[in-house]
Every structure is written in structure tokens, then in C-alpha cells.
């Protein structure tokens, strides 16, 4: 439950530092990228182009997406040479 107006600090200030870490911008997304691992050749095009550093890479392999920060722009799907990424509508 978020604070009521009576509970918030005066003047809309934030009383502790570094709170933007807790701001998961992925909830702006209307479509999410989905990977087909069969088609992925780990070329890293998606990793290069992703504007939000939301491509998960482990040991040089593309392992999926950081949905906490992925805004669903679809650039990865657009750039993927093997069409291994498809955009799927987010349902509530």
C-alpha cells in the first residue's frame, strides 16, 4: 500500500539516497520480447542494440531478458537476423 498524502514527506522530497535502484522501469511495457532458443545463434545483435541493457548474457550466450527494465521497444526483435525474438502482448 502506498503512502497517503498525510504520510509523505513535505515538498515531495525523497529522504534517502539511491532509491532509483528500486524503480523498475519495466512496468511501462505493453509488449514483451520472447526468445526462441532453437533459432538463436548468439550473435549478440540484440545485446548491442538494446537501449536499456536488458539482454541477459551468461558465458557469451544470450539467455533471455531482464524484464524488470525491458520497456518492450522491440528493437531486439527487429534486429534479430534469425527472427528468434517475437513481441508478445502483455496481458494484465
Amino acid at each position: 500500500m502506498k503512502e497517503t498524502w498525510k504520510e509523505l514527506p513535505i515538498g515531495a522530497i525523497i529522504k534517502e539516497p539511491g532509491t532509483s535502484k528500486r524503480f523498475e522501469t519495466g512496468d511501462w511495457r505493453t509488449e514483451r520480447p520472447v526468445l526462441d532458443p532453437e533459432k538463436c545463434i548468439h550473435c549478440m545483435f540484440c545485446w548491442i542494440y538494446c537501449p536499456d541493457s536488458s539482454i541477459k548474457v551468461e558465458d557469451g550466450k544470450m539467455e533471455g531478458f531482464l524484464y524488470e527494465y525491458c520497456k518492450g521497444c522491440g528493437i531486439c526483435a527487429e534486429m534479430c537476423p534469425t527472427k528468434a525474438i517475437t513481441m508478445v502482448r502483455e496481458e494484465v
Partner: peptide, 17 residues
Amino acid sequence: NPITIGPLDLQDYFFEH
């Protein structure tokens, strides 16, 4: 006591402020 002044305040807090 470091604070942030004037942060982005969207649909979920602006009205309360």
C-alpha cells in the same frame, strides 16, 4: 541525511503531493 529534491512524480504520487 542526503535527500532528493524535485524528482519525477507521476500518476501514483503527484496527486498526494
